[in-house]
């Protein structure tokens, strides 16, 4: 039973097509990465998921039912542009937002305090939001999205502007929530985070879905045709017929193969010729490479340079 199901949704603003025929599903207990360059329709898609805007065509299903506002109490949302009441005290603010999501005041207060402790911002509880640092405000907003224990957590760029310590804290929290069986969707430009965290991804560009699926499955679609070799001695194995392209940075070679199978032959040949191999690694394509390759293709190579922002 998918938590979120988008079926062929389309959204047009005036003359700009924001989302075109997007179909995707998110299962419970998965961490889903929504990827795409700037202006590709990530936020538009998210807004349609939570009923802030309505698709021109196509259907949105939440929790295996057609979209209804009552489902929203089971959704936690962290918008890309953070916003809190500046003059309000942190605790009051959290309690207020918790109540809006259907909690009673006592529960909201209790959970706010517990979460503040968990996110290591207990000292900020009595302060006004405007007195806090940007990172702290972001943590508060993060808490606000989770207070009502939503089954679907949607976060638009959750780690932007956070230092590594806090980013890790947030990531660990999200991983723990996934362990509890929640579905988590987040959008980001940071491929390393996606690679580390996500079980499934969808890559969109110019409003269209370029690829989607499980992380392993997507990666397996791309050939493991790159090899990194650290060696000393004879470098003639780099001219093996299976090598499409080779760069030798004095002892560290990056090789691109015509075919995955050639890797073992090359290793055998190198050893045979007496080259001393320190390390021989067949590398799988990074998500970043997949991202850039796909987005470039979607824009057409000519204009890709300036537009792609990975």
């Amino acid at each position: 039973m998918p938590i979120v199901e988008l079926q062929n949704i389309r959204k047009v603003y005036d003359t700009k097509v924001a989302v075109e025929g997007l179909t995707l599903a998110i299962e419970p207990g998965t961490m889903f990465g929504l990827l795409g360059p700037n202006g590709s329709g990530k936020t538009s898609s998210i807004r349609m998921m939570i009923g802030m805007t309505v698709p021109d065509s196509g259907t949105v299903r939440l929790f295996d039912k057609p979209f209804a506002r009552t489902s929203l109490n089971r959704v936690g949302y962290l918008p890309e542009e953070r916003g809190l009441y500046k003059k309000m005290k942190v605790l009051d603010q959290l309690v207020f937002l918790g109540q809006l999501h259907g909690l009673d005041e006592a529960t909201a207060r209790k959970r706010s305090l517990a979460w503040c402790e968990r996110m290591e911002i207990s000292e900020a509880i009595a302060k006004k939001t405007e007195e806090l640092s940007k990172g702290m405000q972001q943590k508060i907003q993060f808490i606000a999205a989770l207070l009502h224990e939503p089954d679907l957590i949607i976060m638009d760029e959750p780690f932007s502007g956070l230092d590594p310590v806090n980013a890790t804290l947030l990531m660990d929290t999200l991983v723990a929530l996934r362990g509890e069986g929640k579905a988590i969707l987040f959008s980001t430009h940071r491929m390393d985070q996606v690679e580390k965290l996500c079980d499934a991804i969808a890559l969109i560009s110019r409003g269209k879905l370029l690829l989607s699926g499980g992380m392993r499955e997507i990666k397996s679609r791309y050939p493991r045709n790159r090899v990194q070799v650290v060696f000393t001695g004879d470098d003639s194995f780099l001219r093996h017929s299976g090598v499409a392209e080779a760069k030798n940075y004095s002892g560290i070679a990056e090789i691109k193969l015509h075919d995955e199978a050639a890797a073992q032959q090359i290793l055998a040949e190198a050893v045979e010729r007496g080259t001393h191999i320190n390390r021989f690694e067949v590398m799988e394509p990074t998500l970043e490479e997949i991202f850039i390759e796909n987005v470039r293709a979607s824009f057409g190579d000519a204009e890709a340079g300036g537009r792609v922002d990975a």
Partner: peptide, 16 residues
């Protein structure tokens, strides 16, 4: 004020 502080986006995720 709510528009400039962008609070509305969190609010609109639950209320009309």
């Amino acid at each position: 004020e709510e528009k400039t502080s962008r609070v509305f986006e969190v609010l609109l995720a639950t209320i009309k």
